[in-house]
Amino acid sequence: MKPSRVALIGVTVILAGYALLAAWLGGHAYAYTTARDRATATASGTVVEDGVGDDEDIRVRWTDRSGHTHVERFGVYDTGRYAEGRRFPVAYDPDAADPSGFPADPEETAAEDDLLVPLALAGSVALAMTGVWAWRGVRFRLTGRRPGRPMTAVVRAGERPQGWRAPETTWLALTDGDGRTVWQRVMGHPALHGHDREPVEVTVHGRTDTRRPVVVELPDGTRLVPLGRLRRGAPLHELLDRPRSAAGGLRDAFVIPAGTVVRPARAWWRQVLLLTGGGAVVGLVMSLALAEGGLTGTVGFVLAMGALLPSVWILSAPQP
Rank of each mutant, 00 (worst) to 15 (best):
Asp55Lys: 07
Gly259Phe: 13
His68Glu: 15
Thr69Trp: 09
Gly233Gln: 12
Gly306Gln: 03
Glu201Met: 02
Thr169Lys: 01
Thr63Cys: 10
Arg87Gln: 11
Ala128Arg: 02
Phe74Pro: 07
Leu315Phe: 07
Trp269Met: 06
Tyr82Val: 03
Ala246Arg: 01
Ala104Phe: 02
Arg180Tyr: 04
Gly279Ala: 08
Asp55Glu: 14
Tyr32Ser: 00
Leu240Met: 14
Phe254Gln: 03
Ala7His: 03
Arg73Cys: 04
Pro167Leu: 02
Trp135Asn: 09
Arg263Pro: 00
Val204Cys: 09
Ala166Asn: 04
Ser124Phe: 15
Ala307Pro: 12
Arg211Asp: 15
Pro99Val: 11
Ala22Val: 10
Glu49Trp: 03
Ala43Ile: 12
Arg207Asn: 11
Leu315Cys: 02
Arg180Met: 04
Asp113Ser: 09
Ala29His: 08
Ala234Ile: 12
Leu239Thr: 14
Arg136Gly: 11
Ala134Ile: 15
Ala153Leu: 06
His28Met: 00
Gly75Gln: 08
Leu295Ser: 03
Arg212Ala: 14
Asp220Gln: 04
Arg185Phe: 06
Arg65Lys: 10
Met1Gly: 04
Gln319Pro: 01
Thr152Asn: 10
Tyr82Leu: 05
Leu15Ala: 09
Gly179Lys: 07
Leu121Arg: 00
Ala173Gly: 05
Gly297Ala: 07
Thr208Gln: 05
Ala291Val: 06
Arg160Asp: 13
Pro118Ser: 03
Trp269His: 12
Pro320Ile: 04
Gly177Ala: 14
